[in-house]
């Protein structure tokens, strides 16, 4: 098994894939769905927002290990963030994940487990999908947002 694969499928990722956190529905609140039309993966992100602060976040849907782990880690990470901070985090995560391998990147804490996708350009969209949905849900746009390699800054070879 290659070193790259172990970077992609880190133990944290495999654990969140096996046991996704906050994998449930929510009545009311804000929600949006991320859909990858290339592979059919879907993630619906639900948020309970009080006074511009995310008090609860959960998700539903189906996808690969990277999508599930990314969504699971995200719902843990964004709780108690303000809407503005969460939006800034989405941008930071997008930028970090699409940085070429070897380039210096921000320390994302627990979210750092997702950075293995940098070695697998076509899988970046998987890690980003729940975050695209989050961005839409932050603005209370109950809609389906599509992600594709084109939605990223980095050109996919």
């Amino acid at each position: 098994m290659s070193v790259d694969l172990h970077a992609l499928y880190q133990e944290v990722v495999l654990d969140h894939n096996r046991h996704p956190r906050n994998f449930r529905a929510m009545q009311g609140g804000r929600k949006a769905e991320g859909f990858n039309r290339i592979c059919g993966d879907r993630v619906t992100v639900h948020l309970r927002v009080e006074a511009d602060v995310i008090r609860d976040a959960c998700f539903q849907g189906s996808g690969c290990a990277i999508v599930k782990a990314s969504a699971s880690l995200m719902t843990e990470h964004i709780r108690d963030l303000t809407l503005a901070d969460a939006a800034a985090l989405v941008e930071r995560l997008r930028r970090t994940l699409s940085a070429p391998p070897g380039a210096p990147i921000d320390d994302l804490g627990a979210l750092g487990a997702l950075t293995g996708v940098r070695l697998f350009p076509i899988r970046i969209k998987c890690a980003v999908l729940p975050w695209e949905a989050l961005l839409a849900a932050l603005s209370a746009r109950d809609e389906v947002v599509y992600t594709s390699p084109r939605s990223l800054d980095r050109r996919i070879p």
Binding site: M1, D4, L5, Y9, C39, C64, A65, I66, F120, R123
Partner: peptide
């Protein structure tokens, strides 16, 4: 318990080219 895209990525690293998806 394994999504086809994860199968595809791991097989690719073993040099095995298959199609995954719809």
């Amino acid at each position: 318990g394994v999504h086809p895209h994860d199968i595809g990525t791991i097989l690719d690293r073993a040099g095995v080219a298959i199609r995954v998806g719809h």
